[in-house]
Design a protein around this nucleic acid. Structure first.
Length: 621
RNA sequence: GGUCGCGUAGCUCAGCCGGAUAGAGCAACGGCCUUCUAAGCCGUCGGUCGCAGGUUCGAAUCCUGCCGCGAUCACCA
């Protein structure tokens, strides 16, 4: 049985992970026996569908539920009678099922307490619980994300990209896939030349060091300066009677920038030296921001190294008759078969466009890693680009084109709409992190939690909490949806937030420290013997049990939000348990130890979940 | 205009491979700290799931049409 399979849904090829098989899932066993029940009781062959066995809803008694409505036509009996028959059948075959009840068409199965106790006993000490077995190198996944331009500092939109890409990569690792995180830096082009022109004209020889600025901010300011001066020129020109588009193209500044670009492409020594110097400033700034965000890469590609690669592929495509050229010498791909337009791949002067480069970098990346899949975390404004990219690669006969997936995500918007640099509403990544740390500091002191922590340790805590709030806020939202960030109402620390989950973890650790002090952490004495499970314990165990399949699901959908919502659910359930059920003060020692182990495992799962989201958890807060 | 995506409580979001009375958090209001961390817990208030049809025993969920918002359809990246 393979661990994954490829399926067609509509026009697109998707990779489907089968649920975790590392340990047999009780749901699968129930489903299998249900099929058997229908066969033996009613002489009908049915197939297992995904939603056959569901978790029992909170308000009813039971762990898993089967809806028997669909098989009434086979049983020719009332829902209650059918449920009863099937329930009896399942209970006879499966030791795990303790009892069941039927309400309307719903068969609610209650698992024996022994099942849950076994589960806890086997897994509470496993620090890697939930992670899946490793897969071979042929299953490698390359994830591209971040992909910044070197003319602007990172902003909130980049943060979403970085967090998503990094988390998806980690989640895939947790599913056993070898993963390579790669970044493709756009370090060339007219926009870079604009910053260089601006530096020469207005910087008066200043450097980030002498200006006391981060390198990326320093260069970003130059880009803004260019834009402003350029606009002034354009305005002056239009007043003199130039047509606006003409003025924008041919203002003195633009001419200078284009001149710079030509020199760059010719490898002019002075231009290259300046370019190199300014890029280094930017990278120093980026590195700092990445480090603060906790983002890292296995390999960084630079467009200046790769931008010519696509041409070769295009030339071959032209020779093979897959592409065609027009009279002016430009090269195109005809996409009319796919119901799309024509796509330009080489300009009349032979220079390449974005698509050409991407053909090249895709090829390069494939040759570098020979991965099973190539993922691109890029905003949804580029959906069309990736659709076309895949089609063209396919037409060019590159079989792995089908292994490319664009992980498309929505924009981060402000309550007023999109962020606009012109209006100064762009939320800068560094500023936002500073703000989060400061808020963490303030909130912590307001709550009077500073008594035991001081200095360096306290700073570390503020960093974890501030960053945790920010990351969770972004990752809990379904990637494909646009999300709203309100700078006025800073990110909360209560309720469905990162700090809430971090707090739950810290609480558990505190409990475990106390348990150890009292010598109550002796795992060999668990699990509890006679005492029955209370409802809250059972709820937590059920959630913990789902962890492996949750990781699988988040990987399958490339969706960290699934994991974020899962861990919130767990934390919320644990807090209710903590509030209602005594742990260290439990009536007998067996029960206390059982609850301690349950707490410990909940802590482990919270830590692992948060780690996959890129969020650290503090031991105290 | 064509294509794609999204529309769930005042706000931010879950739920969406059809199933039981649509869930959280924030905001508002009211309770709970001499007991394991109150960044917590409990309760009240709040919904024509954009609108209209269709499929079905059953639709927030699937299909169609419409409305609204967004993206895209560059010799920008």
């Amino acid at each position: 049985m393979p661990d994954e399979c490829w399926v067609f849904k509509g026009q697109r090829l998707f990779c489907v992970f089968l649920p975790c098989k590392d340990q047999p899932m009780i749901k699968d066993a129930i489903a299998g026996n249900f099929v058997k029940a229908v066969r033996e009781l009613y002489g009908q062959e049915i197939s297992v569908s995904d939603g056959l066995v569901q978790k029992t809803r909170r308000e009813f008694e039971g762990d898993y539920t089967i809806n028997v409505f669909p098989c009434l036509k086979y049983s020719r009996k009332k829902p209650e009678a059918t449920g009863q028959e099937v329930g009896d059948f399942l209970k006879d075959r499966m030791d795990e099922i303790g009892r069941f009840n039927v309400i309307r068409g719903f068969l609610n199965l209650v698992l024996r307490e022994g099942f849950w106790k076994d589960f806890l006993e086997k897994n509470h000490a496993d620090a890697d619980y939930g992670l899946h077995a490793g897969k071979p190198a042929s299953d490698m996944v390359v994830v591209e994300f971040s992909s910044p331009n070197t003319n602007k500092p990172l902003h909130l939109g980049h943060i979403r990209n970085n967090l998503l890409g990094w988390s998806v990569a980690e989640i895939l690792k947790a599913n056993g896939y070898p993963v390579r995180k790669v970044n493709l830096v756009n370090d060339r082009g007219i926009h870079i030349c604009k910053t260089m022109v601006a530096w020469e004209k207005w910087a008066e020889g200043k450097t980030p060091g002498s200006a006391g600025k981060k390198g990326d901010q320093f260069v970003g300011d130059l880009y803004v300066r260019f834009d402003r001066e350029h606009k002034a020129e354009v305005n002056a020109m239009t007043e003199e009677g130039f047509e606006k588009g003409e003025a924008e193209k041919n203002s003195p500044l633009m001419i200078t920038a284009r001149h710079m670009l030509r020199k760059w492409e010719q490898g002019d020594e002075q231009v290259m030296a300046l370019w190199d110097r300014m890029n280094r400033w930017v990278y120093e700034g980026f590195d700092e921001t990445y480090a603060r965000l906790g983002i890292d890469f296995d390999k960084i590609y630079y467009e200046s190294d790769t931008y010519l690669l696509g041409k070769e592929i295009v030339k071959k495509g032209l020779k093979d008759g897959v592409l065609f050229s027009k009279e002016d010498g430009s090269v195109w791909c005809d996409l009319s078969e796919e119901g799309l337009d024509e796509k330009l791949l080489l300009r009349p002067d032979g220079t390449s466009v974005y698509m050409t480069q991407d053909l090249g970098t895709a090829r390069l990346r494939y040759d570098d890693f020979h991965p099973g899949r190539l993922l691109y975390v890029v905003g949804n404004e580029q959906n069309y680009h990736f659709e076309v990219l895949k089609i063209i690669l396919k037409k060019l006969g590159l079989s792995w084109a089908g292994n490319i997936t664009h992980i498309s995500y929505g924009m981060v918007e402000l309550p007023s709409g999109k962020m606009k640099s012109r209006e100064g509403t762009v939320v800068d990544a560094d500023d936002l992190m500073d703000e989060m740390f400061e808020r963490a500091r303030k909130t912590t002191s307001e709550l009077g939690k500073l008594e035991e922590t001081e200095g360096e340790e306290a700073m570390e805590l503020f960093r974890k909490i501030g960053l945790g709030a920010l990351k969770y806020f972004i990752l809990k939202v379904d990637p494909k949806k646009n999300m709203v960030f309100n700078p006025g109402e800073s990110i909360d620390f209560n309720g469905n937030t990162g700090p809430f989950i971090q707090y739950t973890y810290a609480r558990i650790q505190s409990l475990l420290r106390k348990a150890a002090e009292r010598g109550m952490d002796d795992a060999s004495r668990a699990p509890a013997g006679e005492a029955g499970l209370v409802g809250k314990e059972r709820n937590i165990l059920r959630i913990l049990y789902e962890f492996p399949e949750t990781i699988a699901g988040a990987g399958e959908k490339y969706n960290p939000a699934i994991l974020a919502n899962y861990v919130y659910e767990l934390a919320k359930e644990y807090n209710q348990f903590y509030q209602e059920v005594p742990v260290l003060r439990a009536g007998d020692k067996e029960t206390a130890i059982f609850r301690i182990l349950l707490s410990k495992m909940a802590g482990t799962v919270i830590r692992t979940s948060m780690k996959l989201l890129g969020i650290e958890v503090p031991e105290r807060m």
